[in-house]
């Protein structure tokens, strides 16, 4: 028996989420005394895959025939199904994203396995299998049980975190038997997107207010944003004064956004501004005034001079990201 982790292959690269998923599986595996096995589909180099070993994966099946580079949900589902049988997986983990959501439900039907998406935590019990998940668009947490022989989960990003747990990873070729590899679905066109990161879609947003004092000083924020893969934004007066483009203005009269992290730097935190970011998962306020209203709505706050703090922060994040790659 084992735990099978579906590893997403994004053009030959791994995503951090796959590492987190592996760490999550490893924590389950330790409790149950099982091994963590992975499955990856499509062309990808072993060097890249080795990283999975650092998080506790001991065996990886690689279905890397070129014909699988094009994702066909129906075909991918059958590949995973065969892998499940191959390694006798009792628990199958997918990332909680579009790809996971496209394949996991199909697999659930084929295996008659309970499917639990948007999982927030490690299982609280295995007999019966019980876990907490998000429900009602985040307004509640549901406790769910599955009585099926096998269970499919999609843990949410950041529900567990990265925990290293090095193992020797054995990578094996896997050849599924698919009668009609490119069945039914035919690609007729493709456009790669080149646009920069859109403010509305960004997971992290670095935003500056009048406290940044001039248009030039926003270079500091742009550097921080580049480090974090973040989009940049600003308060209204900043856009009004032309320091930043108008479409970066956030707030009641600007854009309404809900990133994972919103850095409000040199922004006082007027309600009209906050109205645009109150959906953010985490607000970080950086302001020289300890009484600034931004600290009433922020999750984390730092009092101090932005011109000093931001370059330091940038260097620290660079280091952090490099170390955690």
């Amino acid at each position: 028996m084992s735990i099978l982790v579906y590893i997403r292959n994004v053009g030959g690269q791994l995503k951090k989420q796959s590492l987190e998923l592996t760490a999550y599986a490893k924590a389950m595996a330790d409790t149950l005394n099982l091994e963590v096995t992975g499955l990856v589909i499509g062309t990808i180099a072993d060097d890249e895959l080795k990283k999975l070993g650092n998080y506790g994966m001991s065996r990886l099946l690689k279905a890397d025939d070129e014909k699988y580079n094009q994702r066909v949900n129906r075909v991918y589902t059958r590949i995973v199904e065969q892998a499940v049988n191959e390694v006798d997986a009792k628990y199958i983990l997918f990332p909680d994203n579009a790809q996971g959501k496209a394949i996991a439900p199909r697999l659930s039907v084929r295996l008659k396995a309970g499917f639990i998406p948007q999982v927030l935590d490690l299982p609280s019990s295995y007999e019966p299998f019980t876990v907490k998940k998000r429900a009602f668009t985040g307004k509640a947490i549901a406790t769910v049980t599955a009585h099926t022989e096998r269970v499919i989960l999609t843990p949410m990003l950041n529900s567990f975190g990265l925990r290293e747990n090095a193992r020797d990873l054995e990578i094996q070729s896997f050849e599924p038997h698919i009668e009609e590899p490119n069945s039914r679905l035919e690609l007729v066109g493709k456009q790669l997107s080149e646009e920069g990161l859109q403010l509305a879609d960004a997971d992290i947003v670095v935003s500056g207010g009048r406290g940044m004092r001039s248009s030039e000083n926003f270079a500091l924020l742009e550097e921080l944003a580049a480090t974090l893969g973040a989009a940049t934004a600003c308060s209204r007066p900043v856009a009004d004064d032309g320091w930043r483009p108008a479409d970066e203005h956030v707030g009641q009269t600007g854009k309404i956004i809900a990133p994972n992290i919103y850095f409000a730097i040199g922004i006082s935190g007027a309600i009209q501004h906050v109205a645009g970011v109150s959906g953010a998962k985490c607000i970080v306020g950086i302001n020289s005034d300890p009484e600034a209203p931004i600290f009433e709505v922020a999750d984390y706050g730092m009092v101090g001079d932005a011109f000093q703090i931001i370059p330091e922060l940038n260097a620290l994040f660079k280091k952090h990201i490099h170390e955690n790659k």
Binding site: I141, Y300, G301
Partner: peptide
């Protein structure tokens, strides 16, 4: 295949945590 056995409210947002260094 699965059963919803219980619901709880999501944890409420706590106050700000002030930090001293980057």
């Amino acid at each position: 295949l699965v059963e919803f056995v219980m619901y709880t409210a999501p944890p409420s947002k706590g106050g700000v945590k002030m930090l001293n260094t980057p």
